[in-house]
Amino acid sequence: MNHIIDNLELIIFLILMSVGYTFGRYNEKRHFKSILEREQTLRTLLMFSERRPPPQNGPVDCALVAGSCVVAFDYFKNFVAGLRNLFGGRLSGYELLLERARREAILRMKQEAADLGATMIINVKIETSSISGEKKKAIGAVEVMAYGTALTPRTS
């Protein structure tokens, strides 16, 4: 019993690590599956970073569409990233997380455009900002925002 109390901090650490790992992995798998499905359904809605509409386009209605996604780091990823700080190299845990956030933000933007009946989004831009800012002990979370101009063909 004393042994457990002496090592309580280590035990808590190990529990947090395994919780972070298990839930992080589970969420990641589920999220990726959902991203791939929705990307397929919204594939016909084209998206470009070009500022002007294609010249062959007929008359269109323009609308601003945006999608944003906030993701938090789990304990496991934070710990691995902390170790990675010693050696340098790819922060693969964070890379994967940001990839998910980017694609989710784009999907939400596309969904908004699809609801408007748009066929194309132009001038697409993606912005990332850290919610915790420079503070060390704040919540580790990142917001990714995608926005662009949705073009809906005029029906009249």
């Binding site: 710990f79 790819r90 990839e99």
Partner: peptide, 13 residues
Amino acid sequence: YSTSHPLKELMIL
């Protein structure tokens, strides 16, 4: 992103 297993990375680090 890389598809390497996160636990493997943890062990190496």
